[in-house]
């Protein structure tokens, strides 16, 4: 089968490693070959966390520049920074809630304008789906559910060769029992928002 290449970028603490391991588990349930690599050197110290996931045939666990089919950014400026992984057909899913890096606070950089950021991504890729995952996570019941909102939005693209039902099943098994309902709700909100959030 064809290979689907997914990159997820996030800031330490946003839970992208849980999101990607849920996707991996869902692929296992769907009998889809899956491989992943992650760079999380200093995730807990506010750095960038990147997961590369490959579904389908092939052996590599790394995605080269220009070769991602789907890019999911948990933080808008990190989505922009990862744009080199994309090509003109890439589907991009981004959170619109910024977490400005500390360098901005000490005057060593300017956070990009969000409208301009979306315009740039839209111009250079196949499709942009932008959602305020923080707002939706709050609606679901926890600001920590940003990852599940974005997982839902990613599944709505139809680009990942795994069924949403299997992703929900993986959420039920991988997430702590007390948080399953909130996480499922966040997933659904993200899935629904991606229908309208595309542009």
């Amino acid at each position: 089968m064809n290979t689907t290449r997914l990159i997820i970028v996030a800031v330490g603490g946003q839970g992208n490693l849980l999101a990607s391991s849920i996707l991996g588990e869902a692929a296992l349930l769907s009998n889809i070959p899956v491989r992943m690599s992650e760079i999380h050197g200093m995730a807990q110290r506010g750095g960038v966390v990147e997961s590369a996931m490959l579904f389908g045939d092939g052996a590599s666990t790394v995605i080269s520049d220009g070769e991602a089919d789907v890019l999911v950014g948990f933080e808008p400026s990190e989505t922009l920074r990862a744009l080199k992984k994309c090509n003109k057909d890439t589907v991009v899913v981004t959170n619109l809630a910024p977490l400005p890096p500390f360098t901005v606070a000490i005057g060593k950089g300017v956070y990009p304008d969000l409208a301009k950021l979306q315009e740039l991504i839209r111009a250079k890729t196949g499709k942009l789906i932008a959602v305020d995952a923080m707002e939706l996570a709050k609606q679901a019941g926890s600001t920590l559910a940003v990852n599940m909102v974005l997982l839902g939005a990613t599944m709505q693209t139809g680009k990942i060769p795994v069924s949403p039902e299997n992703v929900k099943e993986a959420i039920r098994t991988k997430v702590k029992q007390a948080f399953v309902e909130i996480n499922l709700k966040a997933f659904e909100l993200g899935f629904a928002a991606a229908r309208t959030g595309r542009s």
Binding site: V11, G12, G41, M42, Q44, R45, G46, G47, V48, S64, D65, G66, E67, S77, E78, L80, R81, L83, K84, C86, N87, K88, P100, P101, F102, T103, V104, K108, G109, V110, Y111, P112, K116, L120, K124, T125
Partner: peptide
């Protein structure tokens, strides 16, 4: 090779180095 997007008009993105907690 894959055609990389033209990033010449991307504004400078502030760095996000790991930091002491």
């Amino acid at each position: 090779p894959a055609v990389l997007p033209d990033l010449s008009d991307i504004p400078e993105i502030p760095q996000r180095p790991p930091n002491l907690c």
